[in-house]
Simulated scan of single mutants.
Amino acid sequence: MAELPPLREVIKAHGLSASKALGQNFLLDEQLLDRIAAIPGDLAGKAVLEIGPGPGGLTRAFLRAGARVTAIERDSRCIPALAQLQEAFPGQLRVIEDDALSINHDDLMGEPYAIVANLPYNIGTLLFTNWLSDQTWPPRWTSLTLMFQQEVARRIVAAAGSGEYGRLAVLAQWRSRAKLAMKVHRSAFTPPPKVMSAIIHCEPIAAPDSVRISTLARVTEAAFGQRRKMLRQSLKGVEGALSALETLGIDSTRRAETLLVEDFVSLAQLLDQRR
């Protein structure tokens, strides 16, 4: 491994600045980056997919941990900085200049892989839901360790009955074990974002294969789209939902936030069976 200049020098040397259009905020604290890279466990020799590496701060931490990293970066300004890392860690880093939303990640990786990323805020939730929505389960990815705005992170791990509990919690928790792994103060970023951040760690778990993602999405969208209303009102537009509630013994006068993840999954499962 070659000696690397500090990240601030790399950013200055390549004339980089965080792009608001791309939702960029750079992390420069090497100790913090190493702590983030340690969340998914021992990465030595393992495949890691990173989205939006920017100047490569988090990438460095993965490489120091011995990971084999594939980094997808759409900002061409960052490619020279990442090329420096390829030279410093021969054979450990592959850089793909493309849009992460347009690539099949399983085909790209070709083996089990961990996803660890300081996600751009403007595409973070979409990527997260895409990774959780594959009809093939368990997935090829072994874990997700992702940076979100703290508000979004809390919604992912929220328990039934809480104000943050909603569609995102149901989707995340029916197929994965999700936890809030670390809070990150806004001052850790350059430039500092307006909001606090947090890192979510998810590991896939066994989930019913008789549930269509589209059905679960339709049910939760209707239920939480009118979360202040009783289920008999919010779900009346979903064909068969009220009958399914009765079959499952779920009181239709309850509101969406009182149902457990398992309740929504059972409801979607029954609707699919009756199709």
Score class of each variant (00 low, 15 high):
T129R: 02
T142Y: 12
R140S: 14
Q135I: 13
I199G: 04
H185D: 14
G166H: 10
T129F: 03
T136N: 15
S197M: 00
L126N: 12
A198Y: 03
H185R: 13
W141E: 01
S162T: 15
L180D: 05
R155G: 06
R154I: 05
M182Y: 08
D134A: 13
G166M: 06
S133M: 11
T125N: 04
L171S: 00
A159E: 15
L168Y: 01
L126S: 14
G163W: 01
G161M: 09
S143R: 14
M147Y: 09
W141V: 10
V152K: 04
M182G: 05
S162C: 05
H201Q: 12
H201R: 10
L144V: 12
T190H: 09
R186V: 05
R177N: 12
W174Y: 14
Q150R: 15
L144M: 12
L126R: 11
P191W: 06
R140I: 11
F128H: 08
W174I: 01
F148K: 02
A198L: 07
Q135H: 14
A188I: 05
P138T: 12
P193S: 06
L168C: 00
R175Y: 05
F189I: 00
T142I: 12
T136A: 13
L146Q: 07
A153I: 10
V152L: 03
P192E: 06
Q173E: 02
G161R: 07
Q149D: 03
T145S: 11
P193H: 04
N130A: 15
F128R: 00
T136Q: 15
R175Q: 09
W131P: 00
M147V: 08
R155I: 07
L126P: 10
A172Q: 06
K194T: 13
L144E: 10
P191D: 06
K183E: 15
T190D: 09
Q135G: 02
W141R: 11
V184L: 09
R140A: 15
Y165F: 08
E151I: 12
F128E: 03
T145A: 10
A178I: 09
I199W: 06
V184M: 10
G161D: 11
R177V: 02
L127K: 10
G163S: 13
Q173P: 02
A169P: 01
F128V: 05
L132D: 01
R167L: 12
L171D: 03
L146M: 11
R140L: 15
S197Q: 09
P191M: 07
A172T: 02
A158Q: 07
G166R: 04
E164H: 09
A172E: 00
Q173D: 00
K194C: 07
V184I: 13
R186P: 01
A159V: 07
S187N: 06
Q135E: 15
W141L: 12
R155P: 08
W141K: 09
M182N: 01
M147H: 07
W141T: 06
